[in-house]
Structures are given as C-alpha cells and as structure tokens.
Design a protein around this nucleic acid. Structure first.
Length: 412
DNA sequence: TGTCCACTGGAAGGGAGGGCTT
DNA sequence: AAGCCCTCCCTTCCAGTGGACA
C-alpha cells in the first residue's frame, strides 16, 4: 500500500466547520422556540441570587423537547451571575437513568462536595442515612444555594420509590447555613401519581411542560446549527426539511433530527459527495434505526433475549398478537432446548413490560372474556433488522436455540 | 347478573454478591 | 472474621381485572 492509510481521509476536505454543533451535548448560545420555558426557569431561580429559596420545579416533556438543554443553559447563566455577584451557587446534574438508587444519588452529590481531608464515600457499604448526613453537613459547610437537577426522575421513582425525594424535598428544614432546590425532569407527565402526596406537592411547586417541537420549529433549530457548523452550500434543498419532518413524526424529537442530519452529512462525506442530498438522509434514517436497536439487543440479559427470541420466532411463523401464555410456552421450550431453567410466568410478565419500555416490543392488555385477560405482544423491531441474528451474535445459547428454529413443539 | 378465565401487577421477602466497619 | 448495609434478580402469594358467556 502506498503511504499512510490515514492520509487520504486526513487530506479530504470536511463538510463540517464545527462538528460539535451537531452533538447532543452542544450548548448553543440561542435556544429557538423555548423563550417561555427559559423565562419561567429564570423567574424562579432568580431567588437563588436574592438570598431566598427557589421553588422546587418539575419539567415535563417528550424526549428531545429541550428540557435538559434549557436547564443547562439557564443554570450556566445563573452560575455566571452568581460568581459576578459573589453569591455561592452550586448545581448538580444527576441522570437518574444511570444513578437510580437513593444511595447513589446522595453519594454522587456528596462526593461532588468533598474537600481535602473528607473521607471518600464508598459506592456501597454505608447506611444511606449516614451518606445523607454527610451530604447535609457538606452542604452547610459550603453555604449558599444548592440546585439539584434530577434528570429522568421518573426512572428513579420507579426503581427506588420516593424515599429520596421525601428526604430531599424536606432538606431545607435540616439545613442551617444553606438552601436547596430540586429540579426534576421527566418524560412521563403522570409520574407524580406514584408519589406520596406530601412529596408530590413539595416537589411540584412549579410545573413546566415542554411541548414537542413542530416540524417548522425543528427546521429552525437545524438551520441554526447548519449556519454555525456546516460549510456553506453543502446542503441540497429539502434536506433540512426532510430531517425535521422525520423527527417531527417521532414526537418532535430535536435530538433525533440532529442525529439524522449529522449522519446524513457523514454519509455524503463517505461517498465523497460535496452536497448532502435527501438520499443521504434516507441512508441515515436506516442506519439510525439499526444503531439504536442492535446495541440494546446485544446487552439484554439472557432471559430477556430468550423472551424476545420467542416472540420473533412466533412472528417468523406468521403469528401476530401473541398472548403472554404463548410467549411463555415458547420461551420455556427454548429454555429446555438450551438446558436453562426457565423463570416463572410472573417474572416473564415483568420482563415483557421491560421490553415494552425499551421499545423492543409492543404489548397491550386485552381481555378475551372467558378466554381470560392477557397481553397481546408484537415485536417492535424494524423488519430490516434480523433480530434473531443480532441476538445470536452476542449469545451462543440463542444461536443454539435458533438452530432448526422451526421444529419447536409449539409450532408443529 | 354472576361466573369464569388467564392473566396482571403489587407486596413481601429470599438469597447471592459486593463492600464497609469493628 | 463477623456483622452490617445496599443492590439486583428472582420467587411466591394473592387480590384484582375486563369482557364473553350461561
């Protein structure tokens, strides 16, 4: 081979001026169509600079409706202003998808407040109350206002209950030298229904709903990023509109639109086109589907893989709207075939709910009268993706179960 | 109108595993 | 080493459910 293998790509002129403009984490200087939401946050959080306690807030909205980015934007300005005014303001952003137990949330915040000489708080081992005490004393030591952002807070509540929120929304009564405010962010409008009424009323002193972006609004957002991050004249007419329209179909998800656009540009670069066209968007769309689904499939625990395998197997045999009982029978057979002890029907019922939440299946409760009440289950994985192949690749037992896949008893 | 089916989903708790304290 | 504590995954138990059917 002539020359270094990186040379060709390095020399290629990129269509991007600023690739990071298309990242989720990018914080733009302007947030179109979110003025009202920004105003509401600012009006509440200004209390942090006035020596008062800002109200706790709950922000609702579908994924990609700007909740997190708006919160970050407002908080970064708040921190700047606090510094300028000599007010101590500290913010903590916790994503409750990753940090989803009471202990871990408290440990996480307390660790951010640790100073030299503090005993490090272990990931597990201490009683939670002890970690909470450490957090309270560290907050008081620091003084000022502490703003705790709990992103995907519904995940925390569904996994660990509302015990932590009870403590956190009550924390101002035990703080002597500091103040604390909680901002919860949720995709689920109804998640406060699962809360103790006292917690719920203290937490949602102010609610703010982020409406999904319309196709035109997403277009504005994209155009702003394009102006900032892309070489002029690189886009064919209709590309931005198509990305916006596709994302608007997905409940107005601006992140999805950015992903689509970014991947479309990369596709154009890869095929050495100087112009991104709608064909690249379509390629990006299918890649995005593939990239979203296969990593999830690969990382599922064994029994979830077996359940999903059973559903796809039934569908492969032309069966749709399979009942929980049928899924369980196929699943048990698959377990027998590979020599694994099947879990109980109750557990499988929960696993089906989890697969539904992950968007890998669609399950709905139906009653067939005397035929009993059950779930009707269908796979939600795009047809273009061979789910059984993807499952087999990461799990030899699935490959084994899939061998001679059409001879399971339940299909004879 | 009551019965019945095939589940659902909440609650309680067991036990393994990882880590800390004494 | 023993005693705690937390998390995760799972089982067991059981009341509740929607709608067809007698």
């Amino acid at each position: 081979m002539d020359g270094n293998i990186f040379e060709k790509i390095l020399g290629q002129e990129s269509l991007f001026l600023e690739r990071r403009a298309f990242d989720h984490a990018f914080e733009p200087s302007r947030l179109p169509h979110r003025k009202h939401e920004i105003d509401s946050l600012v009006r509440n959080l200004v209390d942090a600079l006035n020596g008062h306690i800002p109200s706790n807030m709950l922000l609702y909205g579908v994924p990609g409706s700007g909740k997190t980015v708006v919160t970050r934007f407002v908080l970064s300005q708040l921190l700047d202003k606090g510094k300028e005014m000599g007010e101590s303001v500290r913010c903590y952003e916790i994503n409750c998808r990753n940090v989803d137990t009471k202990y871990r949330v408290v440990q996480n915040i307390a660790s951010q407040l640790s100073q030299r000489g503090d005993a490090p708080i272990p990931f597990t081992g201490w009683p939670t109350d002890r970690v909470l005490d450490a957090l309270i004393s560290r907050m008081d030591r620091e003084g000022g206002v502490h703003i705790i952002v709990l992103d995907e807070i519904d995940n925390l509540v569904s996994r660990s209950g509302d015990g932590l929120l009870y403590n956190l929304t009550n924390i101002n009564t035990v703080l002597n030298n500091s103040r604390c405010c909680i901002i919860g962010i949720s995709n689920d409008l109804h998640f406060t229904q699962h809360l103790d009424p006292r917690v719920s009323s203290r937490l949602s002193q102010e609610d703010l709903v982020f409406h999904p972006y319309s196709a035109l609004e997403i277009q504005d957002i994209l155009e702003e990023r394009v102006d900032f991050g892309l070489r002029e004249g690189s886009l064919d007419g209709g590309v931005v509109q198509l990305c916006a329209a596709l994302a608007a179909q997905e409940h107005g998800d601006a992140r999805r639109a950015l992903d689509l656009l970014r991947i479309s540009i990369q596709k154009a670069e890869q095929s050495e086109h100087a112009l991104v066209g709608t064909a690249h968007v379509k390629m990006a769309q299918s890649q995005l589907e593939y990239d979203q689904v296969t990593p999830v499939l690969r990382t599922l625990p064994l029994h979830q893989k077996l359940v999903l395998f059973s559903i796809r197997l039934n569908e492969g045999n032309g069966l749709r709207n399979i009942s929980t009982g049928e899924v369980y029978r196929t699943y048990s057979e698959a377990c027998m075939k590979v020599g694994v002890e099947p879990l109980t029907p109750r557990r499988i019922s929960s696993l089906l709910n989890e697969l539904d939440t992950l968007g890998l299946i669609m399950a709905r409760n139906v009653s067939k009268g005397r035929g009993g009440r059950s779930k009707q289950v269908n796979s939600a994985i795009p047809k273009a993706i061979d789910a059984i192949d993807a499952l087999s690749e990461s799990e030899p037992l699935i490959a084994q179960a899939a061998e001679g896949k059409y001879v399971l008893q339940s299909h004879l």
